[in-house]
Each structure stands twice: as C-alpha cells, then as structure tokens.
C-alpha cells in the first residue's frame, strides 16, 4: 500500500518536473526569439518541412472529413426537412472545432514526429554536443527555426484544411444528394460570422505553438539512444494530442 502511494507521489513529482522543464525550455526559446528571427533562411526551410510537406495529407484528410460531414449532416438534417442548413452546420463545426483540432492531430503525427525524431537523432549522434563545442547555440541554430516553422505553418494548414473540407461537404451534399448549391453557400454566408473564422485561426495558432513546442522539447531532451528517440517520438504524439484537446476546451470556453 505504502509502496503504491510512494510510487504515485514519485510519478507525480516526475510529471511536475517535466512541466517545469518544459516551461523553462519555452522561456529560453522566447528569450532568443528576437535574434533568431534575423536568420530567415532556416525558418523558411522548416516552413517547407512542416507545412508544405504536410499539404497532401492535410488536403486528403480535409476532403474526407468534409465528405463525412456532408453525408452525416445530410442524413441528420433530412429528418427535420432542413437540408438547406447543411452549409451552416458544416462550416460552423469545421471553423470552430474540427478544422483546428483535426489539423493539430495530423500535424502532431506528420510534422511533430519528424521534428522529434530529427532532433532526437541529432542528440543521439552527438551533433548537438558538437555544436556546443563549436560555440554554436543549438537552441538558436536548430530548435528555434523548427519551432517557428511549425508555428507559421499551422494556421495556414488549418485554413487550407477547412476550405478543402467545405468543398468536400459540397461534393457530397450538393453533387450527390442534390441540396441546392445556392442554399448551401447562402445559408452558410448568413450564419457564419467573422468571429467564427477568428476562433478557428486563433485555435490553429495556439495548437501550432503547443504541438511544435512539445515536439522540439521531446526531441531535444531525448535520451540519446535508439530507444530514447523512439520514445520521444511516441511521447510527442501522445502529449500533443492530449494537450490539444485540453487547450481546445479552454479556448472554446474563453471565446464562446
């Protein structure tokens, strides 16, 4: 009984320690942020790595999420004889929730793991230690561009996801089931406010910061073994997903 309790306390303390380390890591990143912006070249490369390379998966998933929304929405709304509201239902659920959240989960899986594995491997093969010996700050040279690349790419990925999903829902609702295309877009137009779009973009930005931070933190602090890199990658996905969903609730409560 006592040992169980002790173990629980131990793991809780480890958790607190990790949170503290993460906050310290984030503060260090923030401190070198202004000078790090002076070198745009590596940031552009990371926008390419995290953003442009995720484009195909984001657009494919967006299309199918939209098509599913069209299908489910149509089925549900025809029960009330109000399938004109398909556009409204799709647009609002995408802008407020599905767009940012699904994009963040995909981002954690596609870009977050790549970041964590890359940094973890650099750590395991002593590349980071080599940089420190050459008096090059690895935080500024390696970590910051990767973090910023993710932060820049995320809101753009969210917007692309949402627009592709809207056309996916239109494909199913309008082309397959014959909802009037004018009703689809005009009901959407009359119900969607600019604040809905703002909510989606703010969420995208916050999730981008959270997921990128977790990915670079886990990679940078990976145990320098093959196993450690693998574990860092797994932790990145799991923690990113949980943090995204928790933040989602908080942000929704704040902005609703």
């Amino acid at each position: 009984m006592i040992t169980i309790l002790r173990e629980f306390v131990q793991s809780f303390l480890t958790f607190l320690e990790r949170v503290g380390l993460l906050v310290r890591f984030a503060l260090r990143l923030a401190a070198i942020l202004p000078t790090g912006m002076l070198r745009p070249r590596p940031i552009i490369e990371q926008v390419y790595n995290t953003g442009a390379m995720s484009l195909v998966i984001i657009m494919t998933c967006g299309l199918f999420i939209g098509m599913v929304l069209g299908l489910q929405g149509y089925d549900l709304l025809t029960r009330f004889g109000s399938e004109e509201y398909l556009g409204t239902a799709t647009a609002i659920s995408l802008l407020r929730e599905l767009g940012p959240v699904v994009t963040a989960l995909l981002f954690a899986g596609r870009a977050g793991t790549a970041l964590a594995a890359e940094l973890g491997l650099m750590r395991a093969t002593d590349q980071i230690a080599a940089m420190e010996i050459m008096a090059v700050d690895p935080m500024r040279r390696v970590v910051l561009p990767r973090f910023l690349g993710g932060v820049i790419a995320m809101p753009l990925l969210v917007s692309i996801f949402i627009v592709v999903a809207l056309f996916g829902a239109q494909l199913v609702g309008v082309e397959f089931f014959g909802v009037d295309s004018g009703s689809y877009w005009s009901q959407m137009r009359s119900a969607v406010e600019l604040s809905d779009i703002r909510e989606g973009l703010v969420k995208g930005l916050v999730f981008g910061v959270a997921c990128s931070l977790i990915a670079v933190y886990e990679g940078y602090n990976a145990v320098p073994t093959a196993e450690g890199v693998g574990r860092a990658t797994t932790r990145t996905v799991v923690i990113s997903a949980v943090v995204t969903l928790i933040l989602d609730y908080i942000l929704t409560a704040l902005m609703l």
Partner: peptide
C-alpha cells in the same frame, strides 16, 4: 525547390484565409 514549394504553400494558405473571409461570411 524549397523556396518555390514554401511560397506555394504560404500563398495557398493565405488564399484559403481570403476565401473564408470573403466567400463564407455575409460581408463577402
């Protein structure tokens, strides 16, 4: 290649934002 793809990606992202702001709200 990296520059071109990044440019394309960023442009696509902003086009998506523009589409959302003008085409699916009532001030479009």
């Amino acid at each position: 290649t990296i520059d071109i793809s990044t440019g394309l990606f960023v442009l696509l992202g902003f086009a998506a934002i523009l589409f959302m702001v003008t085409q699916i709200t009532n001030r479009g």
